[in-house]
Design a protein around this nucleic acid. Structure first.
Lengths: 182, 182
DNA sequence: AACTTAACGTAGCGCCCGCTACAAGCACAA
DNA sequence: TTGTGCTTGTAGCGGGCGCTACGTTAAGTT
């Protein structure tokens, strides 16, 4: 007998791939089921309701994201804050990260509207990124904790401006920030 | 005879009020019509299609936003960059701006997915904010243009982190940014 | 007075939504 | 062998969706 927990873990990667490629907005049960090679009936059987499915899926995607970040950690530590920022922004421009970024803004929008599972996913992914940043801070940084939070704020602002076609604005802002002098 | 352009301009404020309070995600024709005290039939009559209605509505809301920013301009110019940032962040925390912010992240998400009308609205609102920032920069600022872009990036990052419940993280980042020393 | 046209109401189309009722298939324990 | 309960397929429910067909009213125009 196949245990339900197994089926869920079989379904989640397929659901995640579908949602990452098409977005959360149009993710309804029948298309999701088709992408996972099952039926809407079965999705509800395994997850209970669509809300639970989405919540579980967001948690799963947050875990994928954490793994992607881990895999992207360079072996040697950057020497400056500017190098930390430039590394993670380069990571943010990588093609394989684009589906995550598109999904990210949907999650942020849901969190801003107060939906609990979106907020949980957003916080999990932000905590992950913040931890990664702290670990990447230069060894001689006078304030790694504050510096990581400063860089996180700058990086999220840059990613947002890039998402709406204001990437040049953010780049000019970073150049004017004096970051390369820190 | 009442001209259609008049009716549209009568409908848009009501539609905007509804969308600002409930979000774009669940804005379908019948609820929108009810909020505007008309029928779905009439909304389509005046706008042609839902897509056009949403596009026009986003343009209208961008104009409201511009007016709200204009109204918020203080008479005397700030003396430091930190003061500029603190003013606009205080503005972002004002209760009357919360509906705009919640809607803002939905617009960003739509723009990130490549939807043209969302992107246009996002750029219009960002251009407005950027212009406002440039006008607010201290008179003795060595680089008002770059500084405004830097502040915009920091501000958007801060607003995003606040939206997902990471407001403290952003505040710590700003404190560590050395902004108060600039 | 006859005609035109913008403005609006009523009713309903076909489609997709989340979800459910019901029964059948299956592995297992008694 | 007979339950017993997990898994799955078929079919469909009530309802909301964007949109349309069609008729009516009322204000101009000629």
């Amino acid at each position: 007998m196949v245990k339900p927990i197994l089926s869920r873990e079989l379904l989640l990667p397929r659901l995640a791939a579908y949602v990452l490629s098409t977005g959360l907005g149009h993710a309804s049960l029948r298309p999701l089921a088709k992408a996972a090679e099952t039926s809407d009936r079965m999705l509800l059987y395994h997850f209970g309701s669509k809300d639970v499915l989405i919540a579980d899926l967001l948690g799963y995607i947050a875990k994928i994201y954490a793994a992607a970040l881990d895999a992207a950690i360079g072996s040697e530590r950057p020497a400056t804050r500017a190098e930390v920022a430039s590394r993670i922004l380069a990571q943010g421009e990588a093609p394989q990260m684009q589906p995550f970024l598109a999904l990210w803004w949907e999650i942020v929008a849901g969190a801003a509207r107060g939906e609990a599972s979106y907020r949980a996913a957003a916080q999990a992914m932000t905590d992950e990124l913040l931890g990664w940043l702290e670990g990447q801070m230069p060894a001689d940084d006078p304030d790694p904790r504050g510096g990581a939070r400063y860089l996180l704020t700058l990086i999220e602002g840059t990613l947002m401006l890039s998402a709406i076609g204001h990437g040049d604005t953010a780049r000019d802002g970073l150049l004017a920030s004096g970051l390369h002098r820190l």
